[in-house]
Amino acid sequence: MNKLALTLAGLGLIATSSMSANAAEQDYEQIRQQFRQVNLTVNAVAEAPMDGLLQVFTNRGLFFSSKDGRYFIEGNIYDLNNKVLLNDAQMRPYIQQNVAASKDGTIEYKAKDEKYVINVFTDPSCGYCRKLHSEIKDYNNAGITVRYMAFPRGGLGSETYLQMQHIWCSKDSRAAMDEAKDGDDIAPAMCTNPVKAQFEMGQSFGINGTPAIIMPSGRLIPGYQPAKALLAQLQAE
């Protein structure tokens, strides 16, 4: 079976017996070519919950497409029978797997009595990111471990992108993050780092601003949440 089919099977998005690997590869190559016309890179493709459509995971989030790739849908699709936002439901396993694979590249603020782990795409220049960070003890005291992932809002090559590389490459990346969130300058430090990969990952989730909170379920919450409100949501999942 090809690499794409194996990836999708691991996500639970397709049944490996539903089609031959060669047929899937041929069909999906056509989809990839069609999406390139609108500057979208296809990361994965699977049958959608709606008959006649595919769900296409791209470098800019999830889209739904006709089988030949001629038409695609940008926007939310609801399952009224089950009262479910399909975009969110289909993205969750994709987000979970990608975030789990990036655990070692995060900057972690661990709760002493850990009950939950959230991943937060952050930018030190973002006001609400700074507000969230100023309350990091509140999250930890509530049993919430916070793992930061990089999302420089100015994009690759921006001043913040360079700053975030310095943070991740510092000998003490947590101290560097604290300083950056306080508005202090960060001493230059360069190394092999995950900033670019994490930024591109966030874009593939459909993230376009910070903070963006990834719940353990894979649910994405855009924007700041105080510890008490976030804890209530975690408990309800």
Rank of each mutant, 00 (worst) to 15 (best):
L80Y: 13
T16R: 13
P188E: 10
A89H: 13
K171T: 12
M19Y: 06
D68T: 00
A9Y: 09
L40M: 15
I14F: 03
Q33W: 05
L8S: 11
P188R: 09
D185T: 11
Q233N: 10
A176V: 11
C126E: 08
R147M: 01
Q225P: 08
G154I: 00
I14D: 08
G202Q: 09
Y78D: 10
A21M: 07
R130P: 02
Q198I: 05
I107P: 07
E74I: 11
T160H: 01
L8T: 08
M164D: 04
C169S: 04
G143D: 12
I136S: 05
L220I: 14
G75M: 11
Q33A: 12
A21Y: 06
C126N: 11
L231W: 06
Y71N: 00
Y94E: 07
S217D: 13
G12N: 10
R219H: 05
N87W: 02
T145I: 04
L231A: 05
V99P: 07
I214V: 14
L86D: 07
Q30P: 02
S125R: 14
G154M: 02
T192C: 01
I77Y: 04
Y139W: 07
I144C: 06
N22E: 14
S17F: 03
D27E: 15
M190E: 10
A142L: 11
Q203C: 09
N193Q: 13
A150T: 04
M91P: 11
P152N: 02
A175W: 06
K83C: 04
M50V: 14
M1L: 09
Y94T: 06
I73L: 11
A229L: 07
G127K: 09
S66D: 00
K67R: 15
D178N: 13
Q37S: 05
L162E: 04
A100M: 11
F205E: 09
K67W: 00
I77E: 10
P222Q: 07
L85Y: 04
P211Q: 04
I118R: 10
V117E: 13
T106R: 12
H166W: 06
K3W: 01
Q33F: 02
F205R: 08
M201L: 15
L231H: 07
A46L: 09
P194D: 05
D68F: 00
E29L: 09
L11Q: 12
F57H: 10
V38H: 09
L220F: 03
Q96I: 05
D123A: 01
T145L: 03
A44D: 13
F199C: 03
L80E: 10
V99I: 15
L85T: 10
S20I: 07
L40N: 12
R130N: 04
K171S: 08
I167D: 06
N193M: 03
A229P: 09
M201R: 11
I31L: 07
L80F: 14
L13K: 15
L6E: 13
E159V: 01
L234H: 03
I73R: 01
D184L: 15
G155R: 02
A212G: 07
N140A: 09
D185R: 13
Q203E: 14
A9S: 07
E25S: 08
S204I: 07
R32M: 08
G154R: 02
V120T: 06
L6T: 09
